[in-house]
């Protein structure tokens, strides 16, 4: 059986495209990095792929707001293709700058009357550190279906504090996918730095849309696929995020 194909679109300034490709390849998919220009000129269509994964980085240098212009491209150039893909139940992932882009494009939280934004970290600076994420048990997204334990992975962002016009509505429909935990105590970070690196209300690290097929998150699960990458290498076992990618690849295979 042919490996499912993952489209990883690259805007000027995208930089974790290779990382995301490595993670999907490790999960058995064929990952294709493609510049937006090539997509725009019809080199491929979204319908040629089974998964769409928007990578991290600094698209357009974060000019005018992190992910904003990437989001504008998605809506302006590929709006129809995105609608079709979503209707055909394609899993869509946005990581870090990709999360910022799909929130800006309105794909997340996904309700027309509830816009969201990823805004400046509470401490006002770029922050790179390993964090611990709890997959939320009430969220039945396919992306979370093989995650049974908290995962460790790095964050690397300056604008990761999730704000929605109505966060309660997202909570209500079990739309929160990941929350930041205190990795030492195992308790929720409860807004405290550094376990919650950006000050997001409710320790929200990632959310899904109402179908569960669109997942966006600030941390980088694609950077913890192998145990050798783990900051706790040799001290603790487990914690990898590979099952998240396996789950999506398995879902589109079946």
């Amino acid at each position: 059986m042919r490996a499912p194909k993952v489209l990883i679109p690259v805007a000027l300034g995208t930089n974790r495209d290779g990382d995301l490709a490595d993670a999907f390849e490790a999960a058995g998919a064929e990952a294709i990095r493609m510049p937006l220009e090539a997509l725009r000129h019809g080199e491929s269509k979204l319908a040629d792929f089974q998964i769409l994964a928007i990578p991290g980085g600094f698209s357009y240098g974060d000019a005018l707001g992190a992910g904003r212009l990437f989001g504008l491209d998605l809506v302006g150039w590929f709006g129809d293709q995105l609608r079709e893909a979503h209707e055909s139940e394609m899993p869509i992932l946005g990581v870090c700058n990709g999360f910022q882009a799909i929130v800006s494009a309105g794909l997340l939280p996904g309700e027309a009357d509830n816009p969201g934004v990823l805004t400046g970290n509470a401490r006002g600076t770029f922050e790179c550190r390993w964090v611990t994420l709890r997959p939320e048990p009430g969220n039945d997204s396919i992306w979370l279906s093989e995650l049974t334990e908290p995962i460790r992975c790095p964050v690397a962002h300056a604008e990761g504090r999730f704000v929605a016009a109505n966060l309660g509505a997202v909570e209500q429909r079990n739309g929160v996918a990941f929350r930041y935990l205190d990795g030492v105590s195992g308790e929720l970070a409860n807004g405290t730095y550094p376990a919650n690196p950006n000050g997001s209300a409710g320790d929200v690290a990632g959310i899904t849309d109402s179908t569960g097929r669109i997942l966006g998150l600030m941390p980088h699960p694609e950077n913890h696929i192998w145990s050798r990458q783990d900051i706790l290498r040799g001290r603790r076992t487990g914690g990898q995020a590979l099952p998240m990618f396996n789950a999506a690849v398995a879902a589109v295979r079946s």
Partner: peptide, 23 residues
């Protein structure tokens, strides 16, 4: 200082500027 630098991108980093159980 070091927290404001991305030391993880590319996913290859094994020994990073900070480690230990509390990182």
């Amino acid at each position: 200082t070091i927290r404001t630098y991305d030391h993880e991108v590319m996913g290859g980093t094994m020994v990073r500027p900070f480690g230990g159980p509390h990182g």
